[in-house]
C-alpha cells in the first residue's frame, strides 16, 4: 500500500513527539521531579502511531500502564499530560491519576490502566456501545504480550467475535512481561495464533515498521467499521527500557538489546523519508526543533501550573456528592 507523503510526515512527527515526551519524563523521573511510577514506551512508538493514524477523533482506544504513546498518538495534549505527570491541577486527571491513568473522553481515550488486561473488557463495552448506537465508530484495544495470559483477553475476544463488535485488538509483543521473557510466560511464539480460537483474523506484523502497522491496522479498522467484526494484530516490538523507570532491565541480554536498538523504529522512518526524498536533512531538523519547542512549552505549562487544592481530594469520587464523602 502506498502511504501519502503527508501521512508519512505526520506519523514521523507523532513518533518523535512520543519519544521526546518520554525522554523528558525519563529525565525528570531520574531527577526526582516526577513521583510515582513511569513506564516508558521507548522503542514501541511505531505501533501506536501506525494504528492511530487510521482513527478518527471520535473512535475509542483503551490503553495500558505503558500508555503515553497511545494517548499522544490518539491526539492527547502534551501540556495536560505533562501537567498530570507533575501532579498539577491542570493535568488530565487534576493530579489524581498520574502517568498510569490518563484519559481524554473528548478524544475517545478511555484511559491508560494500571491493571494488566483490564482494557480488553472495557474495549468490548465501548465497541458494543458504538454498535448499539449505530455509529461507525471503532475501538482499538492496545495491550502487551503478557496480558494475553489473563482471562480477560480470552473472554473479550470471544465476546467481540460472537457479536461482531467493531474492536481491533492490538497486541504489542515487546518480548517481556515485566522481567519474564515471552518464552517463559507462554508456550506459543506468535500470539496472533490465538485468534483461531475465536474465529477472527489474526496477523503478525513487524511492530517496528510503522508502515506495516499502518497497513495492517487500516484493513482491520475497515473490516470493523463495515460490521465484519474484530481482528487480532500482533506487533512484534521491543521495550528498550526496563519495565518501569528504576528497573535496570538486567534480565535482558545485551546482544538482544543491541539488535533491537538497531531496529529502532524512528531512525527507520527518517531513513525512509530521506531515501524517498520526502524531506531533506534540514527539513527533518526543523521538525525535530518544532517538537522540542512543543515539549518545552508543555514543561513550562506544567511547571507554572498550580498543585491541586487540598480540598479537591474529595471531588470527583461521585458525580453528585462531595462533602458527604468526608462524613458518611
Amino acid at each position: 500500500m502506498t502511504i501519502p507523503n503527508m501521512n508519512v510526515i505526520d506519523m514521523y512527527k507523532t513518533m518523535l513527539k512520543i519519544r521526546k515526551f518520554e525522554t523528558k519524563a525519563m529525565n525528570f523521573f531520574a531527577e526526582g521531579k516526577i513521583p510515582g511510577f513511569v513506564h516508558l514506551y521507548i522503542g514501541e512508538e511505531a505501533v501506536a502511531t501506525g494504528v492511530c493514524a487510521n482513527l478518527n477523533d471520535d473512535d475509542y482506544i483503551t490503553s495500558t500502564h505503558r500508555g503515553h504513546g497511545h494517548i499522544l498518538a490518539k491526539g492527547g495534549d502534551l501540556k495536560f499530560m505533562m501537567a498530570e505527570l507533575f501532579g498539577r491541577a491542570t493535568g488530565y486527571g487534576k493530579g489524581k491519576g498520574g502517568s498510569m491513568h490518563i484519559a481524554d473522553a473528548t478524544k475517545g481515550i478511555l484511559g491508560a490502566n494500571g491493571i494488566v488486561g483490564a482494557g480488553h473488557n472495557i474495549s468490548v463495552g465501548a465497541a458494543l456501545s458504538a454498535q448499539y448506537r449505530g455509529t461507525k465508530q471503532v475501538c482499538v484495544c492496545f495491550f502487551g504480550d503478557a496480558s494475553t495470559n489473563q482471562g480477560t483477553f480470552h473472554e473479550s475476544l470471544n465476546m467481540a467475535s460472537l457479536w461482531k463488535l467493531p474492536v481491533i485488538f492490538i497486541c504489542e509483543n515487546n518480548l517481556y512481561g515485566i522481567s519474564i521473557h515471552q518464552s517463559r510466560h507462554q508456550a506459543i511464539k506468535d500470539i496472533s495464533e490465538r485468534a483461531v480460537s475465536y474465529n477472527m483474523p489474526g496477523i503478525t506484523v513487524d511492530g517496528n515498521d510503522v508502515f506495516a502497522v499502518y497497513d495492517a491496522a487500516k484493513e482491520a479498522i475497515k473490516r470493523a467499521r463495515e460490521g465484519n467484526g474484530p481482528t487480532l494484530i500482533e506487533c512484534k516490538t521491543y521495550r528498550q527500557r526496563g519495565h518501569f523507570e528504576g528497573d535496570p532491565g538486567t534480565y535482558k541480554p545485551a546482544p538482544e538489546q543491541e539488535e533491537w536498538v538497531k531496529k529502532d523504529p524512528i531512525p527507520r522512518v527518517e531513513k525512509f523519508i530521506l531515501n524517498k526524498k520526502i524531506l531533506n536533512e534540514s527539513q527533518l531538523k526543523d521538525i525535530q526543533q518544532e517538537i522540542d519547542i512543543q515539549i518545552e512549552d508543555a514543561v513550562e505549562f506544567a511547571n507554572n501550573s498550580p498543585y491541586p487544592s487540598l480540598d479537591s481530594v474529595i471531588e470527583d469520587v461521585y458525580s453528585d456528592m462531595k462533602e458527604e464523602v468526608r462524613v458518611r
Binding site: 473522553a105 478511555l110 480488553h120 465497541a127
Partner: peptide, 14 residues
C-alpha cells in the same frame, strides 16, 4: 468479568 467490563465500557461511552 466481560459482562461487567462491557457494562463499564458502554457506560463510559454513552
Amino acid at each position: 468479568g466481560a459482562i461487567v467490563g462491557c457494562a463499564v465500557g458502554s457506560a463510559a461511552t454513552g
